[in-house]
Amino acid sequence: MKQSPLRVPYEPVEVTAAPTANRRVLSKQRTRAKVLDAARQLFLERGYEAATVRDIARRADMSTGAVFANFEDKADLFEAVTAEDFDRVAEAMREVAAKPQGDLGERLVDILSTGYVYYADSLPMVQATVSQSWLRPLNAELRGRAALKVLLGIIGDALREAARRNEIRQDFDVRLASEMLWDAYLANFRRAIYDGWSLETLRARLSDQVDIVLGGLKAR
């Protein structure tokens, strides 16, 4: 029998304040942050394959054992680093989305190109992240998908709001349209890396792609 496809609703995720942590928890968080910073540096400098947990531990100034007390393996570390990046990008995109300016096209370009700005100095990280994302096991994929849901939700909200303003038609598939915009945004990274695109080129390209998708959403 055919498995039914996984459907994830796009709902805004509620952010609650973290409870006051005790000293032990704080110390553990600090260690974790230190390891993540070191890991990010090494993944960026050497790439995923060449970076070793031993080198990451050395860079963080701690033992390999201490690293393994916090993370299962290199893949786990990498996932944590990329998840942190993802959260930061989502935060930046949400901030841009909260200050509505211009028409829908301009807003979408502003929101999405926040990601280009964030990764401008760490494009190899994006390559590694996308590459790994094609290979990760299902449970990691589900975690990645939950993070993506937040970003797609930001795009979806902008689309829904424009539909309310009658800027685009009312009867469209928000998920389909959001994912198509996301795919275009993501595909551009690859060309930016191989063809050495600047931020301006990336943004201009994205803007043209957004126009094409919106053309479909404006057709009545």
């Binding site: 496809p5 469209f172 094409i212 919106l214």
Partner: peptide
């Protein structure tokens, strides 16, 4: 776990959206 048929149906919806604008 989409079958080639699911994939074709999805593609058709994606293409319909893009082509509507063109």
């Amino acid at each position: 776990r989409l079958t080639p048929e699911d994939l074709s149906a999805l593609t058709e919806r994606q293409l319909n959206l893009l082509f509507a604008g063109a």
